[in-house]
Design a binder for these strands. Structure first.
Lengths: 194, 194
DNA sequence: GGTATTAATTATCTTTTGTTAATGCGTAGC
DNA sequence: GCTACGCATTAACAAAAGATAATTAATACC
């Protein structure tokens, strides 16, 4: 594989999840296309059916809800991560979440229909979807549990420790909604801590 | 299949997820055993590695965290539902959650090692694990999103509408921690509403 | 059935968060 | 460079939730 290939990063990530033969890898990369999008670009709007998932080669993006006209961040993703409205992508139902880039992004776009075809022709790729779903579940569970276990202040402290990258690359009003609080409240917490 | 079989309910649930031939069904039921346990029985303790998942033929159970000596309910399950510390079950790592019965339970116990064997001998069962993980993710996402989108009072109202069974079968102090609040606060919300 | 325990409610007070508005800061665009 | 806009902070007040304790209700057990 060419070192300059846009699939280099993807290969590093996927091969940890599911070792593929060279032939399998070729058919796997075939379900992706390349796309560059600017900052503040909406890859998916609420209500649309998600037919794509994205692997981020470069940049940052977020999942967000819209409630009463307000944007509420559900998750942030950076280089070497997948981002998708997984519920909509899996069920092919209208999405409750939107996807918006936070920085200019270089993406590998995974087509749902092509993934389905590939899985049909080679059921081994069920393991890929399975691993994705399992990983997504475990990550989400850690996040969800913090809402019943921790106070907003503790959640912020944990974020500082576990995901400092978010703090560096994401504006604070987005972080506030991600933590389930208002920007004003987050500002107070930051003051209390410092 | 015998109508009185303990696998009757399981069959109804699984066949919706993954249609199986009679032969496949036989090998599938082979990975389960039957177990009856009383109320307040711990099927899994925090720190243990989960080697079992449970399908509830009868009864009710909960997943719970323990923080500072206090029990905090993460989820409730009833008849025809699966319950497991999925993170521990999947990763075979020490569980952050415990599983406790809320009522006397009749269970079908799924052995992790037998499931792995089965999946190895027939990769088609990857689809089963995949469907479970995907379902678990979608359900968890709906729950998790309510923590950033809704107030405790709205969460309680949603629960009333979407899962009234919980209110009927689960003590209120468990529901309170499930909603991320104290029993005192839940009592106040109930008063406000009525 | 009566007693002991546990659970739920109510009351009081403290702490935290939400709301609204004002101020200060930085950046983008002209 | 200036202006305008969005973002973060601060302030003041209202609303909600936490903590503790007392009371009432429900239940579990002998």
């Amino acid at each position: 594989m060419n070192v300059a290939s846009p699939f280099q990063q993807l290969h590093a990530v996927v091969s940890k999840m599911l070792p593929l033969t060279e032939k399998e890898w070729d058919s796997f990369t075939g379900i992706f296309t390349y796309r560059s999008v600017p900052k503040k670009f909406f890859l998916l709007q609420v209500g649309q059916v998600s037919r794509e998932a994205y692997f981020i080669n470069k940049g940052a993006a977020r999942l967000l809800f819209v409630k009463d006209g307000e944007e509420i961040s559900a998750n942030f993703m950076f280089e070497n991560g997948f981002i998708a409205s997984l519920e909509s992508f899996l069920l092919q139902a209208p999405s409750r979440q939107a996807i918006e880039t936070i920085e200019d992004c270089d993406l590998l776009v995974l087509s749902k229909s092509k993934l389905d075809e590939l899985t049909k022709s080679n059921p081994r790729f069920n393991s890929f979807s399975r691993a994705i779903a399992e990983m997504a579940f475990v990550m989400l569970q850690r996040r969800a549990s913090s809402f019943i276990l921790d106070s907003p202040e503790e959640r912020y402290q944990n974020m500082l420790k576990e995901k400092p990258e978010i703090l560096e690359r994401v504006p604070q009003h987005m972080i506030a909604s991600y933590l389930g609080i208002t920007p004003v409240s987050l500002s107070r917490i930051r003051k209390r801590i410092s």
